[in-house]
């Protein structure tokens, strides 16, 4: 059953969460770069090993995974920002009371 007890908060809360998510996406992007660099450094340090190609493959996989994660976080942040904008008018009366 769907719980229908909800009410909208101040749209500012949603906007600030959207900003947090955008920052998280940037951090995630930075983390992916570091991860991939670390794995490629590892592969370079083991030129004739079994580990090297595995490290290269993992770097490629995490680069793709990371890009998808970042895209997902950005999309969610944008959705929240849009919700905040649309909620401003519809929920203005209630939000004033809730605050």
């Amino acid at each position: 059953m769907t719980d229908t007890t909800g009410f909208a908060l101040d749209p500012e809360d949603l906007r600030s969460t959207a900003v947090e998510l955008a920052a998280a996406a940037r951090q995630g992007q930075e983390a992916v770069r570091e991860l991939v660099a670390g794995l490629r450094a590892l592969a370079a340090a083991l030129p004739a090993s079994r580990a090297a190609p595995v490290a290269e493959a993992l770097a490629a996989a995490w680069e793709a995974d990371g890009a998808r994660w970042v895209a997902g976080v950005l999309a969610l942040g944008e959705a929240l920002a849009a919700t905040a904008t649309s909620a401003t008018d519809a929920d203005a009366t209630l939000a004033r009371g809730v605050r």
Partner: peptide
Amino acid sequence: AVFGPALPPGWSG
């Protein structure tokens, strides 16, 4: 990045 953000706790629906 992953554990930092939190959606507004009082927001439901």
